[in-house]
Design a protein around this nucleic acid. Structure first.
Lengths: 233, 233
DNA sequence: AAAAAAATTAATCAAATGATTAAATAATTC
DNA sequence: GAATTATTTAATCATTTGATTAATTTTTTT
């Protein structure tokens, strides 16, 4: 059984005041926590070292004392996030024993649980992949291709679609739709809330529902065939 | 009939050298064009006025001469983008005469055509809506709610779902999925290309296919019902 | 062509910002 | 408890970066 994603760090900034006093948190931890939040929300360039220091309630010099530079701090946080997330997902994608349908269910569950637990993560992942040419990180240090594991899953989809015959949709649509339905609601929750008139609680309920619904939708999409009726002018 | 979205500006930076010589382009236009590209790709903070000037091949002072400040330039570009995009979409959503199914087809077509013509637009729209608290713009100047038009469309969906009975999915899922399937492939084309092993040309072909496929998928999703089999543990 | 206006440039300013230093304080070791 | 090490601070440096100025060139108007 796959364990759900659990953030491997604790975030002081998000704690209630009462909690804060019960635990003694090192300055180092405070900095990392504040930095993680600011970097995710505003990006590397827009996040100022002074903002981080202020949010963490520490002296500016401590940031350099512990992490050498803003850049190094950023890289450290990125690495932690990616490692924490990647651990489970690679195993899932690459599992050759698991049937495609069950795998889809597990993938959806894993992602949504991870994103509900760490709401900054989806934006993080996308920004790393999308803008790894714009973000000042030593060559794709964090652009961890899911690589081989990904291929296993893709092959399973291809095989399934082949049964549908020559008019089945392209496997890329399946991957695209799966990732779209999982990621997008999180990266644009503000937009969706406003468009569909939801509050934060409604949103969480919907996301829970989606863990069951997305696999159903994906399976039914794979039934779609492309023919003259669909595609031609 | 609704005209497809056409970028209302011409972008010199993207022109072939031959084209550049045939038209004389004002410094003002060059700046706007370069700025648009950089702002979208890297964000406001990461884009330096010197980068814009260099890319446009003009003197740094001209930026302030024409646009007063980096901030003003940013706002101008944002406004142009939003106005150009919004024009058609509000009319579409709000059309009370058009049937829901046809409307979905038209909406998908409109968005995808717009995004294919201006690949920066989806990220722009999302960033405006998502981070309008982080981007330094005078209070939601660009956060144009589709407002009433949106409500018309939402009502049409609700009505359609009511026919399916009490177990039909929440209308928010329909809006969510529609927007997800349209937007996400564009905002994360890099990710999808790598995950599904596509090149740029494959990508465009897939997006064209999606204009026909997404409405089919959305309609079939609306057939899904939530029952104990789907939701309960 | 002279005068006026517009466009462009190089040089420079001022504030923001990442980073360092040297001194002070707290914690740990011996 | 003295010595040593680790942590924290205030002050400061150096670079980046948005913006301005004053002079120069180009274009337009008269």
């Amino acid at each position: 059984m796959f364990k759900p994603f659990i953030a491997t760090y604790l975030c002081v900034a998000k704690m209630k005041t009462a909690e804060k006093h019960s635990i003694k948190i090192s300055a180092e931890e405070k900095i990392k926590c504040s930095a993680r939040e600011l970097f995710t929300q505003k990006g590397f360039a827009a996040t100022k070292t002074r903002d981080i220091a202020e949010k963490a309630g520490i002296n500016l010099a401590l940031l350099n004392y512990y992490f050498r530079s803003k850049q190094k701090l950023y890289e450290l946080i990125m690495e932690e996030n990616m490692i924490a997330f990647r651990t489970g997902i690679v195993r899932l994608f690459g599992d050759t024993a698991m049937e495609m349908e069950e795998k889809i269910e597990k993938i959806v569950e894993y992602y949504i649980d991870a994103f509900l637990a760490n709401r900054d993560l989806p934006a993080f992942i996308i920004s790393i992949i999308h803008t790894h040419q714009h973000t000042p990180v030593p060559d794709n240090k964090f652009y961890i291709s899911i690589g081989n594991a990904q291929k296993v899953f893709l092959e399973q989809i291809k095989k399934h679609l082949q049964k549908k015959g020559i008019n089945a949709i392209h496997p890329a649509h399946v991957i695209t739709n799966l990732m779209s339905l999982i990621f997008f609601p999180f990266t644009s929750s503000t937009m969706l809330k406003s468009r569909a008139g939801l509050n934060e609680n409604d949103f969480i309920i919907l996301m829970q529902e989606r863990k069951k619904l997305i696999p159903i939708w994906i399976m039914s999409m794979m039934e779609t065939t492309i023919n003259s009726k669909n595609i031609k002018k």
